[in-house]
Every structure is written in structure tokens, then in C-alpha cells.
């Protein structure tokens, strides 16, 4: 079954500029797929479509289908429960006074009991390695910790598809390494928009390359990343890590 199907999706900004032009792709259940492209390629805009945050007014014909459900006005809440979106800036996502309140936000919106909410929070914080952080204030956390709390907040909703927008930007090497290990350990379908091409090599067997609102190519990550001409033509560079992989990995 496909976790995600995007079918001929186009979107224009209010000033008339095209942000997405005829974007189509699929992500199978259990897959980990990277979405790469230069700044302004439309990656973040695309991600906002995946749980109905865009377009502002739902299209008459849905162009996005999540686990067989078309994303439309009538099933937005159900879709948002299935698609967990991790935003680029953790400060946008951590809007509650304490870590506990923040991680509990999603489960509370799902109408779970106090006991279930508590259970979900404990489990999610344990998954991201932040046990004992319940009463901490987001304002006093490091960037990496904030990012992990955000992820806990998303995981607590038990999504089937995890959508991450630049998850490793502005993390220090240790924070980045820990996040990669964490993402690898999570048994859910993942779509990761990133500039961190080494992360792509490590985590994502499949890749979608976007530029100027269009899908340029999709296929096996290593094959596409090794194509230096293709990478340079779209403002990217083949990651150095490729030179260290032996023939078998390739």
C-alpha cells in the first residue's frame, strides 16, 4: 500500500508565482524517502500540502492521498493524525509553557484520556531520549533538545507517515548524529526534506529531486547523488561520503 500519493499537484503563491508545478510521486509504506533541492525549490510548500495546511482553501479535486485517504476538508483531522509534520524552526512548533504540555498537545487534541495522554508523553519522551524533561521550559533547552521535543510531540500522535522539514539544520555534529540514529530506529514511513545529503546517503534509499517547483528526477539515492552533473545543475553537490562507500554499498 502507498503511504502517500501526490498526483499532479500545482500551487501558486498569492502574488501569482508558481510554487509547485505538476508534482507527482508516491511513497510506499515503510519507505524512507529524501526530498532534496536548492532553496526555493518548493520543498517546504509541498510538505505543507501533505496534511492539508495548504492550499488555504481545499481544492475541489484532492491531489494528495494519505494511506488511501484523499486530503480534503472533510477528513483534515484524520489526515493530520496520520501525518506527523516536523517543522523547520523548533520554536514555531514548541508553543506550550512546558515540555510535557507540548508533547501532550497532539494526544489531547485527539481526545485521549488524561491517563492515555500521560502514557503517550512518557513513551514519546523516552523514544527521543528525554526522560525527566517533562517540567522543563522549551525556552531553556538547547537547539538539539528542542528538536527532539518537537519530534516527541509528533510521535506522541502516533503518525503513520513522518514528514520532516530540514531536521538536521543548525544541529551540532553530536545532535545530528543522535537524530539520525533516532530516525533510523523509528518504524514509520518517513519523507525527509533536507540539504544534508550525507544524511540522505545514510538514511534514505530513495530520493526525489525538486527544483523550481517541479520534480526533476526520482530514484535510488546513491545513483542520483553520484550524478555530479545533475547535482550541480540543480544547486547541489555530490556528498563526499559517496567516495568512501565501497562497491557493494553502491
Amino acid at each position: 500500500m502507498n503511504a502517500l500519493e501526490v498526483d499532479h499537484l500545482s500551487y501558486h503563491y498569492r502574488d501569482g508565482r508558481a510554487a509547485l508545478a505538476d508534482v507527482s510521486f508516491e511513497v510506499r509504506e515503510g519507505e524512507r524517502v529524501a526530498l532534496v533541492g536548492p532553496n526555493g525549490a518548493g520543498k517546504s510548500t509541498l510538505l505543507l500540502h501533505l496534511n492539508g495546511l495548504l492550499p488555504e482553501r481545499a481544492a475541489r479535486e484532492p491531489h494528495v492521498t494519505v494511506f488511501g485517504m484523499p486530503v480534503s476538508e472533510s477528513n483534515l483531522l484524520e489526515v493530520r493524525a496520520r501525518v506527523g509534520l516536523l517543522f523547520q524552526d523548533p520554536d514555531d512548533q514548541l508553543f506550550c509553557p512546558t515540555v510535557f504540555d507540548d508533547v501532550a498537545f497532539g494526544p489531547q487534541q485527539q481526545g485521549l484520556s488524561v491517563h492515555q495522554v500521560r502514557e503517550r508523553v512518557t513513551e514519546a519522551l523516552r523514544d527521543v531520549g528525554l526522560e525527566g524533561f517533562e517540567q522543563r521550559m522549551p525556552h531553556h533547552l538547547s537547539r538539539g533538545e528542542k528538536r527532539r521535543v518537537c519530534l516527541a510531540g509528533v510521535l506522541a500522535c502516533r503518525p503513520g507517515l513522518l514528514v520532516l522539514d530540514e531536521p538536521t539544520s543548525d544541529l551540532d555534529p553530536r545532535g545530528r548524529r543522535e537524530l539520525i540514529a533516532l530516525l533510523r530506529s523509528l518504524p514509520v514511513t518517513q519523507l525527509i526534506a533536507t540539504h544534508d545529503l550525507e544524511l540522505v546517503v545514510e538514511l534514505c534509499p530513495a530520493l526525489i529531486l525538486m527544483d523550481r517547483g517541479r520534480v526533476i528526477r526520482q530514484g535510488p539515492s546513491i545513483e542520483l547523488l553520484s550524478d555530479e552533473g545533475l547535482m550541480l545543475a540543480h544547486g547541489l553537490e555530490s556528498p563526499h561520503i559517496l567516495h568512501h562507500l565501497d562497491g557493494r554499498d553502491r
Binding site: L48, R80, G84, D91, Q93, F95, Q109, G153, V154
Partner: peptide
């Protein structure tokens, strides 16, 4: 701008 992004983040986790 931030308010718009926070609103999106709240909606993404089922805020009504």
C-alpha cells in the same frame, strides 16, 4: 510571520 507558522504547527497536531 511567526504567528502564521505557529498556527500551522498547531493545526498540524489537530488543533481545532
Amino acid at each position: 510571520d511567526r504567528a502564521a507558522r505557529i498556527h500551522a504547527a498547531m493545526c498540524a497536531r489537530g488543533w481545532r
